[in-house]
């Protein structure tokens, strides 16, 4: 209760601001079409209106405010238009139709999940190698950290086109980009996690005459779980961004990234915003799923209450 009320107030304020902001954003077109329909507007001449600021124009034509919330191609669509479009493209369409956001979302989601699985798997393996081999730690770790400061997404178009030229298309190139993006957070987090037991605990296992693999399975791996889940949450969000950006450069026709791109080509702003909201919902759902698994696992391990 302590957070629900403030969050609700903040969200309501954002929505209210959104409706208000839509008035000046869309007012020029609203006034022009109202005049065509025969309504009284001030000022009369179109040239004069073009030179006016949006806020001044909005202030002088309060009758057209509601018109700015119902346009087909507004500069800024208002929330109810976006929600209506989301509803129309998910619930009212057959899920396998190309009009359906469920279909596009599935295309993006499958690439995201495959890439995330590959990236996480390889990341954990590399982290295990780094923890157990001093040479690997010293050679690879600086590069793994440095690579996080590099805008990796810049190579996304190249990966798509190069793989395309050798005949690999569809899900795999996008999944590779996703894997690449989720790989480094997992490596860095997992190395930290596998090293998190303190010297006392390692000493204890040594007094038990535990072998390296026993130490790994019974101490290092369980201790790394909280770190692993923290990086998984970062990784899955990064994977989704990777899959979406991977859909941009080749002019793909399927996926949420392609919806963004076609929307921007044809000025379908409502479509862009609904695709954007779909990605936001997808990202939130994926992070929530990982967080749910995290809570259940840590609770079972006795690491969280």
């Amino acid at each position: 209760m302590r957070t629900i009320l403030p969050v609700a107030v903040v969200v309501a304020a954002i929505v209210a601001f959104w409706y208000l902001a839509a008035i000046p954003m869309n007012i020029h077109f609203a006034v022009t079409s109202a005049q065509r329909a025969g309504a009284e507007v001030t000022p009369e001449s179109g040239a004069e209106r073009r030179n006016m600021g949006a806020i001044a124009l909005a202030a002088r034509n309060p009758a057209q405010w509601t018109d700015s919330w119902t346009q087909a191609k507004p500069r800024l669509p208002v929330p109810h238009q976006v929600v209506a479009e989301l509803w129309r493209t998910t619930a009212l369409q057959h899920p396998a139709s190309k009009q359906s956001l469920v279909y596009h979302g599935w295309v993006t989601l499958s690439a995201t999940v495959v890439g995330f699985a590959i990236g996480t798997g390889l990341g954990i393996l590399l982290a295990i190698g780094i923890v157990h081999s001093r040479a690997m730690d010293m050679s690879v770790m600086p590069w793994a950290i440095a690579s996080q400061t590099i805008p990796i997404l810049a190579i996304a178009p190249m990966i798509i086109v190069v793989l395309n030229s050798i005949g690999v298309q569809g899900l795999i190139p996008k999944a590779i980009i996703s894997a690449y993006l989720s790989f480094f957070p997992v490596v860095v987090g997992m190395v930290k996690g596998l090293r998190s037991p303190d010297a006392m605990q390692f000493d204890l296992l040594k007094t038990y005459n535990a072998s390296r693999s026993e130490t790994f399975w019974k101490l290092r791996l369980p201790a790394s779980a909280p770190y692993l889940f923290a990086s998984l949450k970062v990784g899955i969000a990064a994977s989704l961004v990777g899959a979406i950006v991977g859909e941009l450069p080749t002019g793909a026709s399927r996926g949420l990234g392609a919806r963004l791109l076609t929307g921007s080509y044809y000025g379908q702003t409502v479509q862009i915003w609904s695709a954007l909201f779909a990605t936001a919902i997808l990202a939130a759902a994926l992070v929530a799923i990982v967080a749910g698994i995290e809570r259940a696992t840590l609770k079972r391990m006795g690491l969280a209450t």
Binding site: A237, L240, A275, L276, T279, A283, A284
Partner: peptide, 8 residues
């Protein structure tokens, strides 16, 4: 902060 804001 967790959303894919590049999409905007």
């Amino acid at each position: 902060a967790a959303l894919p804001i590049v999409g905007t």
